[in-house]
Each structure stands twice: as structure tokens, then as C-alpha cells.
Amino acid sequence: MGWTTIKFSGEEIIEIAVQMEESGKLFYEKAISLAEGDKLKEVLTYLAQGEAKHIQDFSKLGESIDYSFLPNESYPGEYEDYVRSLVNSHIFKLTEVEDLIKGIKNNKDILRIAISFEKDSIVFFQELKNMGNKAASEVLEKLIDEERGHIKKIVAMIKDL
């Protein structure tokens, strides 16, 4: 599936979310070998495990999300364009993880990329939550809370640098 062909079926939205989380997991796993210090390596391992769990959570959501609802639009397809722009601007795409890894010079670079990923994910998950049904919203709220926890860990690491 291309990044520019979003349709609001539960299956496709879940696929995009899973791809994002897989990209994050891959980044964290690759960044471990570049990280200096055991504490950062532990945090990156924890973050990779968190993304792996989110992949499972999204896979379980499957078709239970109803994306037939769209907010009021000023033109047809406006909301779809907005969500597409969120996906396209998300820092992690599987194809770009290697480029991000190549650009890392120090721990600060790793943490800067990590915090961008987590923030992007929260924004995207929040939009999914706004569009989804009640059951999906509860799962997504839990995932958003977990991503917030990831940001707290990353910020604590930045303060320790």
C-alpha cells in the first residue's frame, strides 16, 4: 500500500498504524548499537518492546474500527487529505529508517528522533481515536497514554545528557 492511497477502511488505517510502529521498533533496535551508555541502551530496548506491543494491539483492533464517520469538511476529501498529510509528515517510514540511522552522530540525535516519532504517533493516534468507535477509542487512549510515557522516559534521558 502506498502512503498516498489512504482510504478510511479499518483495515487500511490499521495497516498504516502497524507500519508506523514497525518503523519505530526498527529504529529503536538499530539505534541501540549506536547508543553510548547502558542506560540509553536500556531505554531504547524498552521503547522497541513498547512498539512491538503496539503492533500487537493494532493487529487485535483489526476491523473493529468504523471509519465511515468523517468530520464536517469545507470540501470533499478535506479530512482524508489532512490524515494523509499526517502520515506523509510522520518522521518514520520503513524506507527512511536507514537514512535516519546514518545521520546519527551522538545520543542527543537518537533522543531527538525518538521524541519526534513519539509526538507524531500521538497526533496520528488521536485522530484515529476521534474517528473511531467507542471500543477502538478506549484502546487508542491506552496507546496514547503509553506513548506519553515513552516521551517522559526520553525527556528524562535528555536531561541526563
Results as ranks from 00 to 15, higher is better:
1 M>C: 07
2 G>P: 13
3 W>P: 04
3 W>A: 08
4 T>D: 12
5 T>C: 04
5 T>A: 10
6 I>K: 02
6 I>R: 02
7 K>Q: 13
7 K>P: 00
8 F>Y: 02
9 S>R: 03
9 S>E: 08
10 G>N: 02
13 I>K: 00
14 I>Q: 00
15 E>Y: 02
15 E>C: 01
16 I>P: 01
17 A>M: 01
18 V>K: 14
21 E>P: 11
22 E>Q: 13
22 E>S: 08
22 E>D: 10
24 G>W: 00
24 G>P: 05
24 G>F: 04
25 K>F: 06
25 K>M: 15
25 K>W: 04
26 L>A: 14
26 L>E: 14
27 F>M: 06
28 Y>W: 09
29 E>H: 06
30 K>R: 14
31 A>N: 06
31 A>Q: 10
33 S>L: 13
36 E>M: 02
37 G>W: 01
38 D>G: 12
39 K>E: 14
42 E>F: 06
42 E>C: 04
44 L>R: 01
44 L>V: 05
44 L>I: 02
45 T>M: 10
45 T>G: 08
48 A>M: 01
48 A>H: 00
49 Q>T: 05
49 Q>F: 01
50 G>F: 03
51 E>Q: 08
53 K>M: 10
53 K>R: 09
55 I>K: 05
55 I>P: 00
56 Q>N: 12
60 K>R: 10
61 L>M: 15
62 G>L: 12
63 E>H: 11
63 E>M: 03
65 I>R: 00
65 I>N: 00
70 L>S: 06
71 P>K: 05
73 E>H: 06
74 S>Y: 13
75 Y>E: 13
76 P>K: 09
78 E>N: 09
78 E>G: 08
79 Y>M: 14
80 E>R: 12
83 V>N: 07
84 R>S: 15
84 R>Q: 15
86 L>A: 07
89 S>A: 14
92 F>D: 09
94 L>T: 12
95 T>E: 14
95 T>G: 11
95 T>N: 13
97 V>F: 03
99 D>E: 14
99 D>W: 05
100 L>R: 07
101 I>K: 11
102 K>Y: 11
102 K>A: 13
102 K>G: 00
103 G>H: 04
103 G>E: 10
104 I>G: 02
104 I>C: 08
105 K>A: 09
106 N>F: 11
106 N>L: 03
107 N>S: 01
110 I>V: 12
110 I>T: 06
111 L>Q: 03
112 R>E: 09
113 I>M: 09
113 I>F: 14
113 I>H: 05
115 I>Q: 09
117 F>M: 12
117 F>A: 11
118 E>D: 05
121 S>Q: 06
125 F>Y: 15
127 E>V: 11
128 L>C: 15
128 L>V: 08
131 M>C: 04
131 M>P: 00
131 M>T: 02
132 G>D: 03
132 G>V: 02
133 N>E: 07
134 K>A: 14
134 K>G: 02
136 A>E: 05
138 E>A: 15
138 E>G: 15
139 V>Y: 04
139 V>F: 05
140 L>K: 00
140 L>C: 10
142 K>H: 10
143 L>G: 01
143 L>E: 04
143 L>H: 04
144 I>C: 07
145 D>H: 12
145 D>I: 08
146 E>P: 02
149 G>L: 04
150 H>I: 04
151 I>V: 14
156 A>T: 13
157 M>Y: 09
159 K>D: 14
159 K>G: 07
